[in-house]
């Protein structure tokens, strides 16, 4: 991926989640190589089955928002988000944290426990937690699927801006056409485990878009 935000589009069961887990370092490759090429640090081999390289997940700096939010049940919303940060004591940290919580619309929930908030709220907290972590890249597994469309469309540009300011690229996987157009990013279309097409969503997902518009038009 070379663009700031890339979407991997494929039907359910095509192995999208597996790809993210391999990149995150949660699963091991059977054969192959994963390389990160960031502007700031050059080429970095994260996994290589030939060279027997496997950088463990916690050293990859690739926070992942999974389909299930996986909030730590014994920590508050704030405690969950702060778990992601290393002991950053930089000036203005509290202001940055407040801004991030507001961005994800969870500021009012900061002292609640995960069992006391809704599914959509949990998903936004998981997003905030991942955004607070030190990141080489952000991995998103259908992170907006539990949110209502209005909130999703309001949230996405702000998340984009936040990440662009920190130069953190995003790899998102989804099977939801609406989500792809809402993000408006480079799309890689997977079919039978291979890249079938790559480019802007209007071109790569033209078939789906036409069908969707026809359905809407009645």
């Amino acid at each position: 991926m070379t663009k700031p935000w890339t979407v991997l589009f494929a039907p359910s069961g095509a192995g999208k989640t597996t790809i993210l887990r391999l990149i995150a370092g949660l699963d091991r490759l059977e054969k192959g190589k994963i390389v990160s090429r960031a502007e700031s640090e050059g080429e970095l081999v994260l996994a290589d089955t030939d060279g027997r390289v496997h950088v463990p997940a916690h050293r990859r700096s690739m926070p992942m928002v999974a389909q299930r939010p996986a909030l730590f049940p014994h920590r508050t919303v704030l405690g969950n988000v702060l778990y992601a940060g290393t002991e950053r004591q930089a000036a203005g940290r509290d202001m940055q944290l407040d801004a991030l919580l507001e961005l994800c619309r969870v500021g009012h929930l900061r002292n609640r426990y995960p069992s006391q908030i809704s599914g959509g709220e949990s998903q936004r907290v998981a997003l905030a937690r991942a955004l607070w972590a030190p990141a080489r890249a952000l991995l998103l597994d259908e992170p907006f699927s539990g949110l209502d469309v209005g909130l999703r469309d309001a949230l996405i540009p702000e998340v984009k801006e936040y990440l662009a300011a920190r130069r953190v690229p995003v790899l998102q996987v989804t099977h939801d056409v609406g989500e792809v157009f809402a993000v408006g990013a480079e799309v890689i279309r997977l079919e039978d485990g291979r890249v079938a097409a790559q480019g802007p969503p209007e071109i790569v997902l033209e078939r789906e878009r036409t069908r969707l518009l026809r359905q809407l038009g009645g």
């Binding site: 916690h58 990859r60 926070p63 778990y83 937690r129 972590a133």
Partner: peptide
């Protein structure tokens, strides 16, 4: 303890 908590923590940079 559900594995998803440990996995989430590790992608956030937490050591074992």
């Amino acid at each position: 303890v559900d594995r998803q908590f440990g996995e989430a923590a590790s992608t956030l940079g937490a050591s074992p």
